[in-house]
Amino acid sequence: MTTADRACYLAVPVPTSDRPGPWPGVVLVHDAFGPGDDMHEQADWLAAAGYVVVMPDLYGGRSAVRCLKGTFAQLARRQGPVFDQLEAARSALAADDRCTGVVGVIGYCMGGGFALLLAGRPGWSAAGVNYGQVPDDVADVLAGACAVVASFGGRDTSLPGAATKLRAAADAAGVTADVHEYPRARHGFINRLAAASPLTPMMKVAGVGYDHASAADAKQRILAFFDVHLRGAG
């Protein structure tokens, strides 16, 4: 990697006899809490499965509380430095000798919203959307988009009907998609957020919580999907 290395977390697979490298790449877009330990673990399990993963620090080392409003504003405008940073990460990863040149994106919560928007932009081969915001014009967003694997929680009160909306839009746009809603799961069900944060009260109000069974199944689906659309493309 050559672009803002110190502002990124990089997870590289261990070479094995059946997967010696190079490997497909994945840009991970962190959630609203920033690039903490949980997001590092998300990058690490993808790397263990044979993907070179880079996670840019969208907050530039600043606190989530200071950066949250501005980052969400860029998400709503669909432009700004965050999008430039993610594109720079994709370009640098595709050019890295450890990568096959095929790159996907995965995001969680706020990052899932960015991942969905990026799916319709050039250069991405697959997008993993985990309980990310689904805009009303999602059918337009998905016009010409890459393949999308998405997971939502049935008990996520912040995103009612999101899975149904995304599934219908993908079908209408002719986009290959695996969209699933887990009935028992709440928002953030793949993430283990153990550390206290200034955003913890927001988590309690929104009903955020980890669900092991749903998380395990979602990870299996993501890997199976990426193996087809990222590893297969390589």
Rank of each mutant, 00 (worst) to 15 (best):
Y51N: 10
H30S: 01
G60C: 02
C67A: 09
Y51F: 11
V14M: 09
V82R: 08
H40C: 03
L75R: 06
Q79H: 10
G61Q: 05
G61R: 00
A47M: 06
K69R: 06
L75A: 09
G70P: 00
L58Y: 10
S63D: 00
V27A: 03
Y59T: 00
T71F: 05
R19K: 15
R19N: 15
A43F: 07
R77G: 11
D37M: 15
C8Q: 15
V52E: 03
F33H: 13
R77A: 12
P24G: 02
E41T: 06
C67Y: 06
W45C: 00
D84N: 07
W45Q: 05
L10F: 14
L28T: 10
P20V: 10
W45N: 02
V26F: 04
K69D: 06
Q42T: 07
V54G: 04
V52F: 02
V14E: 15
M55I: 10
Q79G: 10
C67Q: 07
V12D: 07
G50R: 12
K69P: 03
F72A: 07
C8P: 14
P15N: 14
V26K: 00
P22V: 08
R66E: 09
A32N: 06
L46V: 05
Q79V: 09
V26Y: 04
R62C: 03
M55F: 04
Q74Y: 03
V26W: 04
D84V: 04
A11K: 09
G61V: 01
V29R: 00
P24H: 06
P15Q: 13
D84M: 05
A11I: 07
A11D: 12
Y9N: 07
L10A: 08
